[in-house]
Amino acid sequence: MKKAYLMTGTLIVAMGAASLAMAHGGKERGGERGQMRGAAMFEAMDTNGDGKLTQAEIDAYKAKRFSEADADGDGFLSPEEMAAQGEKKNDERRAKRATRMIERLDANEDGKLSAEELDARGPGNLIEKADKDGDGAVTLEELREARMDMRDKRGKGWKKRGDN
Rank of each mutant, 00 (worst) to 15 (best):
E87I: 07
K129Q: 15
D110H: 12
H24S: 07
M15T: 04
M101E: 10
G16K: 05
E109N: 11
H24N: 09
A120Q: 03
G31M: 02
G73N: 11
I127G: 09
A84L: 05
E57Q: 04
D72N: 10
D163A: 14
K112D: 14
N164M: 13
G86P: 04
E32M: 07
L126V: 13
S19M: 00
E128L: 14
M1L: 04
F42Y: 05
R121N: 05
T99P: 11
E141K: 15
G26I: 08
K62Y: 05
G30V: 03
L20G: 01
D59E: 00
K156V: 15
K129N: 15
G34D: 03
A120D: 00
R33W: 06
R161G: 15
D50K: 13
A44N: 11
E68P: 09
N125H: 12
L6G: 04
A137Q: 06
R93G: 09
G157Q: 12
D72E: 04
K153M: 13
G162T: 15
M148T: 14
R147S: 12
K88E: 02
G75S: 07
A14R: 09
A71T: 12
I102H: 11
G136H: 01
L126E: 10
R161M: 15
A120W: 01
T8C: 04
G16E: 11
E142A: 00
R144L: 06
G122L: 11
Q55L: 06
P79G: 04
G38W: 00
R65D: 07
D152S: 14
G155K: 13
D133M: 07
V138Q: 04
K96C: 08
R33P: 02
V13L: 13
G25L: 00
L140A: 08
D91T: 15
G49V: 05
L77T: 01
S67T: 12
N108F: 06
